[in-house]
Write a protein that binds this DNA or RNA. Structure first.
Length: 163
DNA sequence: GCCAACGTTGGC
DNA sequence: GCCAACGTTGGC
C-alpha cells in the first residue's frame, strides 16, 4: 500500500461548549455532534490516525486557534444520533444506516500564545486558507504551510512530520 | 434537478 | 442581536 502523506485539519468548537482546556483534561474525546455532510465526509474519508488538527475557538472573544489535537481513531458512527435525549439526535438515522460519523480527537498541546482570526486574516501567508475564504465549515482541511505558520505564530513545540 | 424557503453558523 | 453566507429540505 502506498504511504499516505500526512494531512492537516482545523476543528471548531465553542469554548462554552467544549474548550481546549476540556480536551487537555479529558485527553481524548469523540468529536460528536458534527451535522454537516462535507465535514462528515472529511472525517470519514480523508482523516487518518495521527493527522494533526488545529483547535479553534469560535463564538467567543477573541476567536482563533488555541491548540493542537491529533486524530486518534478511524471514523465510526456518532452515538449521539441515536440518543433521543441528545440535541444531536437524528430521527432519520438508523443503526443499519447511520448517517453521521465521527473520529476521536486526542489532546496534543495548548498553544503558548493564541493565534487570533484577526492576525490570520491580516497575514498574506494565509491567503486562500479555508478559514478565511469559506469560514463556516466546522471541520476543514488546512494546507501544510498554513499549519506550520500557525505553529510558528503560536510558539508551538509540536513537530510536523516530514513528508 | 431546480430553486425558493427555511435553518444554522458564526463574526461583528 | 444582527445579518451575511451557506447548507438543507421539499414541492414541483
Amino acid at each position: 500500500m502506498a504511504k499516505r502523506v500526512p494531512q492537516f485539519w482545523l476543528i471548531k468548537s465553542e469554548p462554552n461548549d467544549y474548550s481546549i482546556d476540556d480536551l487537555a483534561r479529558d485527553g481524548r474525546e469523540p468529536w460528536d455532534g458534527v451535522r454537516n455532510y462535507s465535514a462528515r465526509n472529511l472525517m470519514r474519508d480523508k482523516m487518518a490516525v495521527g493527522d494533526l488538527v488545529l483547535f479553534y475557538h469560535s463564538s467567543t472573544k477573541p476567536v482563533g486557534v488555541v491548540g493542537i489535537a491529533r486524530v486518534a481513531s478511524e471514523a465510526y458512527a456518532d452515538p449521539t444520533q441515536f440518543d433521543t435525549r441528545s440535541k444531536y439526535f437524528d430521527p432519520k438515522s438508523t443503526a443499519d444506516k447511520p448517517r453521521w460519523q465521527l473520529v476521536d480527537m486526542e489532546f496534543v498541546e495548548k498553544l503558548p500564545r493564541m493565534v487570533e482570526l484577526d492576525e490570520i486574516k491580516a497575514d498574506p501567508a494565509f491567503d486562500g486558507m479555508v478559514l478565511v475564504t469559506r469560514g463556516r465549515l466546522s471541520v476543514q482541511p488546512v494546507e501544510r504551510s498554513h499549519f506550520a505558520q500557525i505553529l510558528r505564530l503560536g510558539g508551538s513545540k509540536t513537530k510536523v512530520r516530514a513528508r
